[in-house]
């Protein structure tokens, strides 16, 4: 490298432009801002998508939850309502009735009692639903205890009705086919 080359190299900075057109930086800055805006837009889109998915998941879960019977045993156990053994009593009575049969032409006599039973079961599900959503309150506990007492009474009533019908059937057979009571 001769002196001339050395001179050029040493004064390299003198060969630089005094300034660069400001439009170059403005263009760079503009592109950076566009990129940031794009990222922000992606973030907003992701956020909206997240919210929509959460709503969908919530409604999906609620729907499933609504369609499923409430876990009766769990709720009763949670609030010490199992101590009365009502569920056991109800189950025994229902099993007995499931085995019972009456003449077909008498089955209509049970319809009102069975509808009453169905209505009570619906009410009971409402009580459980109330506890699930609002927590346990004493008046609901009382309602549940009353429900079981009423249900046991109703099942006893049905049982007695079955026995009465079958007693008279034995005395004076109707020749009608026997059918089971659907409980």
């Amino acid at each position: 490298m001769n002196d001339f080359e050395k001179y050029i190299l040493e004064n390299k900075r003198q060969l630089e432009p005094k300034k660069v057109d400001p439009k170059v930086w403005l263009a760079v800055e503009n592109e950076i801002l566009k990129g940031k805006n794009k990222r922000f837009q992606y973030l907003i889109k992701a956020l909206i998508l997240g919210i929509i998915l959460s709503f969908v998941a919530y409604f999906f879960y609620s729907n499933i939850h609504q369609n499923q019977p409430l876990d009766e045993e769990r709720i009763l156990a949670q609030y010490d309502l199992t101590q009365y053994n009502f569920t056991q009593q109800v189950n025994i009575k229902k099993q007995q009735l499931a085995k019972a049969s009456v003449p077909q032409d008498k089955i209509e006599d049970f319809q009102i009692l069975l509808q009453q039973l169905e209505f009570m079961d619906g009410q009971f599900q409402d009580y459980l639903q109330y506890i699930e959503e609002n927590g346990y309150q004493e008046f609901i506990g009382d309602q549940i205890l009353n429900f079981y007492k009423s249900k046991i009474e109703l099942l006893d009533k049905i049982q007695k009705e079955v026995e009465k019908i079958n007693y008279y059937e034995n005395l004076q057979p109707s020749n009608s086919d026997k059918v089971e009571i659907q409980i």
Binding site: L15, E16, W25, V28
Partner: peptide, 17 residues
């Protein structure tokens, strides 16, 4: 970023030009 740009822009412009 503008500081970095200011630091290098003239040298890069000279090199490219």
């Amino acid at each position: 970023m503008q500081t970095i740009y200011e630091m290098f822009s003239k040298e890069m412009m000279a090199t490219s030009q």
